[in-house]
Design a protein around this nucleic acid. Structure first.
Lengths: 245, 245
DNA sequence: AAGTGGTCTAGACCACGCG
DNA sequence: GCGTGGTCTAGACCACTTC
């Protein structure tokens, strides 16, 4: 089996070796060099080829498993999996597609104000009631078509935002640039229908389906740094994920 | 900081040591023995305490990170984060979810028939057009309240289902019992609104929001073993997940 | 019996955060 | 400077699948 993946390993790079290797394999799988069903060499052979130890090679392969790109079975080997099929009809990840095509999302800032945390917000973010928050409400559009209404609450002590900044950058980019180190997020996805105001903002009929996402993001201290409530047009957005056992 | 987690390690058990340790910590975190903010001992200390090597102890801690239970930072240490009401991403079915919550779901089998794969279905499952499939359509209720309309396509060569079995078990349980080894699933979530038939089945108003989930599950061979198209009442279902790093 | 991945060990050096 | 997690090595034994 030809598993001729080319890797230019840079041992002086800050990027871990296992990640360099995994990235190379991921690229080879995605561009078709390693078509679905391909059986990779065993990990000892691969480790030898890249002059790595077996544990390091394993760490790279584990990353591919986690990404849902290969399956591994003892006694059998490692095989490239069938990629998920994107159906052109119905719901599609138009947002991702447009981003890949080079379209630029634009953001309209509807509201930006300092507020005190009410009971719900305080509980959600794990902070004291009455704590100072920044509340923002935005509409994100792509090529002039509204895609989402995004409402966020950011604790004032995390970062001080300005309306000017928010017009030119995404919230998360902005927060990262200000030293916020996102580590994990809990999110919940559901569905709802557009009311009068929402339908006007998103340019859809009242009663149209919307994807609802609520998210709490935390930094490396475990401190909540953002609470988000987002509504997406269902005809322009769906959330794809790969679950690995 | 008192990190007095008790573990009865069984080295003769088929359960890996790192998993035994991780499970013990997970239990301690979930039951409050290790409240949020608790700082664990460093991994070398922990390894010594459980008589494990450092890599094995690390593997256990990595599992906790992956589950979104702790954060680790070099130079700082390992800290327990907010109480994990959320469950991690995992392969599951609605039936499994409900069982875990202690509820008693019931299933009504609307349709069960042998069909040949049409173009869409063949592409979705990665099989030949015209291949024999089992098509089923069910309504899942909980305590008498309809929760979901579930439509599935299962290749005939994967498992032979019977209507009788489907009334008493979840589809995934049934398939597992027949030797199907689920390994991964690709799924997509979106939103839609109930049409006349759907609203009648789910006992909601026409135009009510529904959570749409499409899923392709694969076994350890990478073969597609189920294609599902599920509609959930938005007022009774949402999907929670934890994203790490 | 041969080959595979899964687990485990006992070290080593490095990058980072802090005092 | 010190302690922390992050990375990497070079082995070992085992469980499982296939022939």
């Amino acid at each position: 089996m030809a598993t001729d993946v080319q890797v230019a390993l840079d041992r002086s790079s800050p990027v871990p070796l296992y990640h360099q290797v995994a990235t190379a394999f991921e690229a080879a799988i995605r561009d078709g060099s390693l078509p679905p069903g391909t059986r990779l060499d065993n990990e000892i052979e691969l480790a030898k080829r890249f002059s790595l130890s077996r544990p390091t090679m394993r760490q790279a392969l584990d990353q591919l498993v986690q990404a849902g790109l290969v399956v591994r079975r003892r006694g059998i080997g490692t095989q490239v999996i069938e990629p998920p099929v994107r159906r052109p009809l119905q719901l599609s990840s138009l947002y991702d597609d447009l981003i890949e095509q080079g379209s630029k999302p634009t953001t309209q800032l509807l509201e930006f104000e300092a507020v005190a945390a009410d009971t719900d917000r305080a509980e959600l973010l794990g902070i004291k009631e009455g704590s100072p928050l920044q509340h923002l409400r935005r509409v994100r559009s792509i090529d002039g078509t509204p895609l989402a209404i995004m409402e966020n609450w950011v604790p004032a002590d995390v970062v001080q935002l300005t309306p000017e900044q928010l017009k030119h950058s995404g919230l998360y980019d902005l927060m990262r640039a200000n030293g916020v180190d996102f580590r994990l997020a809990h999110q919940r996805m559901g569905a709802t229908v557009a009311d009068a105001e929402q339908s006007a903002l998103l340019e859809v009929d009242e009663g149209s389906p919307l994807v609802l996402m609520e998210r709490v993001a935390r930094d490396s201290n475990g401190q909540a740094v953002d609470g988000g409530h987002h509504l997406y047009r269902a005809d322009m957005y769906s959330f794809e994920m790969t679950l690995v056992k």
